[in-house]
Design a protein around this nucleic acid. Structure first.
Lengths: 260, 260
DNA sequence: ATCCATTTGTGCGTATGTATG
DNA sequence: CCATACATACGCACAAATGGA
């Protein structure tokens, strides 16, 4: 009825981490050392550390100076709602660059445009036929050279015909949202949809996620008065991102602003 | 250079699930069957299915009629921002009950009040000393009898002396937010902080989470004009919850309202 | 550049325990 | 009580990664 060995070993190691005996960057005992210390086999030691990996606490590194390392807890903050919103302009991509820099990191992004069949989930939000086609502006966002989030923004095909710049694989200087607004498609309202999930293998690869790292899936649908004009799907690496919404009276936040 | 066996097995099974050959509730081949089908040992078959578990795709069930079962993808939607907000009243708990019922499920909650030392993260948001004490109204929220989310709401001790009902382990009929507003502490502004993470063992236990299930951590700080008055920490089981924010012109959403 | 030592990664065989119907 | 499924645990072997001599 008592807990199995591998859980006991995991519990002890977890305690050392949460108590601060082992700090981010520190190495756990090697598997051989765990065998000796706890009197278990190497496989059992691995079962124990596998738990910690799934909890996102540690990461395994092979090799001479490798080992199991307590994970870093870097957090980048992204303000999903900003005062600028009230004027109907949401400078999405620029806003991200600005925020990253403000937090002392170096942003970068890898960017391309594709024409793709629309999956059902996106089609529903855009009010277009599922499996019809749409333009997708896709980017991988990097912080200090490390992948941090993926963002795909979907635009209905007919809108791209009216605004061909959307299909251009170049940066749009004023930002796509501002561009759309200038052409008569402002987005005075958005709906955000947030879920926590485990990454698909593709996402894990693109974000270079260690096993046991969840992602925050963030769908933003932008509405012009006539119709939805875009859906952005952002996948944030869960180990290094945080989303902030401020709702209500802006004057109040002005009073409490410190490091936010 | 080719992928290891257990990944190949996992990839094949994953494909069957995402293609729809195996649907939620279906059983994967047993470990013995995987041995035969892929020509691997039972341990390797387990390594393969362990991957799928960590991806949240399947769940293991021991016993005669058990096996590895493709997971259900039930999602409950919680609207974090509602039109009611504009009047400064945020009927949190009632709102949750209402939303769950509106989606055809049966809500319930387990509730208690504790006085606890304030962890640093909460103390900072409440502008109180770390390790000082505060009242915590804690609840486990259930949907159709299954745990769905945990919510701890922290109130500074001095506020509880002014409003002793906060310490009562009984339901507050009008809701705590409304009560605070009636006593001179409205919350015309909130700040939300969202992260995806793996659950702590405690959270996993309370939410009855299968291994490989992430959580959505949702911190809401409520501000009255003078000061922050509460911090709610909600931990949503990642496999069954989704958060929605609607921002901007409410008139627009009225036009697109269908099943949201 | 090579080799070597160390550490994790992969894979299998086996035995026994536990859960469930 | 039994049959069948997964759960735990150990032992072993060899591969791959990594960094230092």
């Amino acid at each position: 009825m008592t807990a199995p060995k591998y859980r006991l070993v995991a519990a002890e190691l977890r305690k050392r981490i949460t108590r601060g005996d082992l700090r981010p960057g520190d190495r756990l005992p090697t598997e051989r050392e765990l065998e000796a210390e706890f009197g278990v086999s190497r496989n059992t030691a691995r079962d124990a550390t596998a738990l910690l990996i799934n909890e996102g606490l540690v990461e395994r590194v092979a090799g001479r100076t490798g080992g199991m390392v307590v994970r870093e807890v870097l957090t980048l903050t992204y303000h999903a709602s900003r005062a600028e919103m009230t004027d109907g302009l949401w400078p999405e991509s620029d806003a991200w660059f600005g925020e990253v820099r403000a937090q002392g990191y170096e942003p970068a992004q890898d960017f391309r445009v594709e024409i793709m069949a629309v999956p059902a989930e996106i089609a529903e939000r855009l009010s277009v036929e599922a499996d019809s086609h749409a333009a997708v502006r896709r980017c991988v966002r990097l912080i200090n050279g490390r992948p941090s989030s993926l963002q795909d923004t979907w635009y209905p095909m007919d809108l791209c015909e009216l605004i061909p710049e959307l299909l251009s694989p170049k940066d749009i200087p004023q930002g796509t949202t501002r561009l759309l607004a200038e052409r008569g498609w402002p987005q005075p309202a958005v709906e955000d949809d947030l879920t926590a999930a485990m990454p698909t293998p593709d996402e894990a690869r693109l974000l270079a996620l260690p096993p046991g790292t969840p992602v925050l899936r963030f769908l933003r649908t932008g509405f012009s008065p006539q119709r939805p004009v875009r859906v952005s799907v952002t996948v944030f690496a869960g180990n290094m991102n945080r989303l902030i919404y401020t709702l209500g009276d802006p004057a109040i936040f002005a009073k409490f602003r410190d490091g936010t």
